[in-house]
Write a protein that binds this DNA or RNA. Structure first.
Lengths: 202, 202, 202, 202
DNA sequence: CATGAATGAGTATTCATTCAT
DNA sequence: TATGAATGAATACTCATTCAT
């Protein structure tokens, strides 16, 4: 009993994870309205009813996908980066390389970025309680690095938040490309960095 | 009779225009699946049935919106620009300034760009007959300018098509921002140009 | 426009009435859980979707049926009766005759009584705000007549409310019989009166 | 082995009994359509699957509940009563007292009566093979007593079957009250008897 | 033409039943 | 056996499309 009960809970958790994970990818590609529960279930490889054993409704599932996305792994990394004793330019380089590598390697990264930004759009202008969200924290830490870079002249002038928004916007752009198109050329690290860095005469 | 018939036709054309115009904005914001005919009709200020007097179906309407978007004004302008006897850098500057101004001024420009790119995504990888579309022509002419710039050293190296894609991707990004969010900072002309131009030591 | 708008509203009202009326009969026979929207729609002779043009959900429809039932025609009649300058026995006789006749004649009466009592049961013991409802008002006025009758010795002793409850319970019983069975013998007026009146040696 | 096999069977029987008993109460309160297997299982305190180890389907369970109800204890008692060498009036009194006492004491009696009558309603008018059922036998024996009473002038005139139906209808009524409501006043023995007996001048 | 109520195919959700553990 | 997660047919509800006015 104890062992089986444990195992049971484990299986439940596993299934919930699977549904969340696959739904994330599906929602990212098709949006909320464009996602049918029947298609989603077929895509996951389970029955429609099973989804409702784990999530009350399509909308609740969507929201939980959103929550699950807001893991602060990425935030932590950028925050950590901002504190390192290296030049801002180098920070931006490391960050950019890491991001582009993740985009290539990690199947979920594109979906996470895409969904996050899309949800940001969907919320529209109601700049409600969204001040401690994934997005805004990421932006804050990036803006910090940008500020540092502006001080030492390696980063272009302009509002740091605007530039952070621009930088991550480009990341979003290529997340979309990864999610939706098969034949596209990924930008280079240098391309991404150019959103922020002052170029140098060759 | 003749005059009234004329007038009638004019009114019909007018209404069709209105529907197309409002639909463009609505589709751009909500996507195809996310747009309900009932909502759209209410948004336009007409009855649901009226839409069907002008368009056979939701999908036909969507396609006509798409067609309507593919006016080659912008293409012509970029093509014309590419032929001017000025430096590539200047061409890029003029183009960028014009684009950003349009984004500020023209209500439809953001929708046109957004819808166009979204449709590109929706088509996914099926690189079907889409070789003479708005998007690809725009890219071609932009790539031409980029090529010119690479020759005189003002533009960064890399596949011209990739860079054109990057450039217009950023334009798409800020079209989305304009469409969906009210509080955002528009990038500067210099920011946009930096996707292509080699920076200079201050 | 004005005329057609009027006519339109009229039609809407008419349809709502039709749905409510037919639903009342259907719910009375089959209960809430036993009523399928598809069956109900077929029974009314409209499409399923039409029901949702007038009522948000099955449950809302059910509740509106309930409200519609709580017309105080019957209450008024009994109240009026209780004030007449005739003997309590006569009042009970008139009331009983009227009730039994309605049961025979009026198609809806049985449904109204049945639904009302059923809903009373469904609410169970939560003797919530139900102190001014159809049922309780009806009981109150009936209890008044019973009190009068007890004073002049024509009505059996016992709690007037209990006796009113008994009296209307029997009416409910025969409403059910009318609704559900085709071959049954209706009680006579004397039978119904016997719930309250002291019998007389022949 | 033999002993454990016996024990096993005993346990099986016990569980079947439990399910039947609890189901009876649940069905009586909620009806067939209103009873969900999941709710029923939770109410019994077992898993959903367990029910299907004992009963093939929800409908089979319902039918077995019905069969289990049709124990002829009550019938026998009434039949026996009808043969006793006492006055019809006394028979009716004993029967009524016994019924009301059972309603107070026996947890199942109300459910049995209610379910039985409800099933009668559900069958509707199809007066199928239901001529030897619990209900009809009970009615027959009651009608017999009524006949006897009519001969000696203690029972009101009218079709004995109709009066028996009336009498048991009132019993059904108060079974429902017991099942569904917590605050109600039970009728007195005299109240119940009055459905049949000719009253006397005080 | 314009309307908006009506329609029914399509989609979300529930629930009786099955099955692996 | 008992369990409760998984299933999918049945049911509630939505929305693109039609049609009478």
């Amino acid at each position: 009993m104890p062992k089986s009960a444990e195992r049971c809970k484990e299986i439940r958790t596993q299934m919930k994870e699977t549904i969340l994970h696959k739904s994330m990818l599906y929602f990212a590609r098709n949006g909320f309205a464009g996602t049918k529960i029947s298609d989603l279930a077929r895509n996951i490889g389970i029955a429609q009813g099973t989804i409702y054993l784990y999530f009350e409704s399509k909308e609740v599932l969507y929201r939980e996908v959103y929550k699950r996305i807001n893991r602060d792994d990425d935030i932590k990394q950028v925050k950590y980066l901002s504190l390192l004793p290296i030049s801002p330019k180098e920070k931006i380089h490391i960050m950019s390389k890491s991001i582009l590598q993740k985009l290539e390697t990690d199947d979920n990264f594109a979906a996470i970025i895409a969904l996050n930004t899309q949800m940001l759009f969907e919320q529209g202008s109601d700049n409600s309680s969204s001040d401690s969200t994934y997005q805004s924290l990421l932006y804050k830490h990036t803006a910090k690095i940008i500020s540092q870079g502006q001080k030492d002249g390696s980063v272009v002038s302009g509002s740091p938040i605007k530039l952070a928004d621009y930088y991550w916007g480009v990341v979003y752009l290529y997340s979309l490309k990864k999610l939706f198109t098969s034949n596209y050329e990924m930008i280079s690290c240098a391309d991404l960095e150019r959103t922020l860095l002052i170029g140098k005469e060759k």
